[in-house]
Amino acid sequence: MKTAGVLALQGDFEAHRKAVERAGGRAVEIRGRAGLERVDGLILPGGESTTMLRLLNLEQLFEPLREFGLRKPIFGTCAGAILLARAVSNPVQASLGLMDIDVERNAYGRQVDSRVTRLEDGQEAVFIRAPIIRRAGDGVRVLARYQGDPVWVEEGLHMAATFHPELSPVSDAHRLFLERL
C-alpha cells in the first residue's frame, strides 16, 4: 500500500491523517526532510499559512518540498492550497509556486463568515477563514466550484482545495488523492 505523508508542522494534520485512513489509505506525519523520502505523496493541511511558512524556513524545508513536488503528488487544503499557489495576496507572501493559481487569503472575511455548505456539485464543503482562487492558469482543471469560484482544482501531479474535505465525514478529494499515489 502506498503511504501519504501529512505535513505536521501546525494545523489540522490529525484530521487529514484520519481522513486518509477513512478513505482506506495509510498516513504518516512529516516534520522534516528525512520523512519526505519515505512517502509517495504529501498533504499540506489547513492551519495558519504564516506559521507553516515560518517553520518551513526555519527547518530549511522550503526547497526540499518544492523539489518533492516536481516528482510526487501534493494535495493542499486551505493554508496548504495557499502554500501551493504561484502568487498569494492579502497580504503578499512566499509560496511554493507548484500550481498555476493566484490565491487571496481570508477572502470571505473572518471566522463569523466561515461556513459548512454545499458546492455546486452537491458535495459538502467546510470553509474556515477560507481563501479564494482569483486566477487559475490554462493548465488548471477545476473539479468543483462555489459561488462561481473554483474551490477544488488539479494541475499535473497536484491538487488544491480552498475548503476542508478532511473535516467532512466523506471526502472524495482524499479518495482521489490516494488513487494518484
Partner: peptide, 16 residues
Amino acid sequence: ADFRVKVGLAEMLKGG
C-alpha cells in the same frame, strides 16, 4: 453545521 464551523477553527490552531 454551526458547531462544526466553530470547532473547525480550533482544529486549524492545533500544534500552534
